[in-house]
Amino acid sequence: MTALKETTTIYVYRGDASSGQEQPYSVEVSPGMVVLDAIHYIQAHHARDLAVRWNCKAAHCGSCSAEINGRPKLLCKTRIDQYLASGVPIHVRPMKTFPLIRDLVTDVSWNYRVAKKIAPFEPAEPAPFTLFQRDVDRIQEFRRCIECFLCQDICHVLRDHHDQNVYMGPRFMTKLAELEMHPMDASDRIAFTTQQAGIGWCNVTHCCSDVCPEGIQITGNAIIPLKERAADRNWDPLRRLFGHGPSAHVAEHKSKDRQKID
């Protein structure tokens, strides 16, 4: 008996903003293969113009974000053997939240426009700083972010409600938390966090933390503490006693501050 090379069929979305559909492709399987390897195989053997964005193929750069069987994932970090073992066919589609350019490539430029609006780190005194590891452990967690934007992709505020005009999304909550929690930062972004960044729109469903390939606890460690800081600032109990309840405040802030991000 001759040993045949194992092949499998992978379904890949082909098309652009006007139209498109999934196409089946036959791929030769090799040990340890990831979905990005399969996409490269398809490019080299079946469809040279299959559009995919990738850089490092080592889960460091966050370029190859897409949806595999409906779940936001990095193509380079997703092994195909897990699907083959369970007999589940592999369907690869572009991120849903962002406008499609072509095939698996979306226009993520909105994220960079948002990034530009955040006040940069402002040192309270010039470096070198005296900082201890325990001071920086938490912000180092946030700085692990590879900007793959999978958290933005899964966030229902952006994905289903298209509220990009009022909420900057989990990636930038992490960014704001990182800056706000930096012991040497002299800038204050709390008002910005509640107003322009729209943190009130997050209702703590933890979806972003679940898809983060770096395992950052976005909701627990970044968003909730930021919400607490904002609450301390805006809705402290003394003010509540005098009739400015939090719910009234939230409604007011949300209607008044529906400022466009874009």
């Binding site: 652009d16 040279r48 113009d49 559009a51 350019i101 072509r102 490539v105």
Partner: peptide
Amino acid sequence: GPIHFNPG
């Protein structure tokens, strides 16, 4: 193929 985002 098309010219936009064409890896080949």
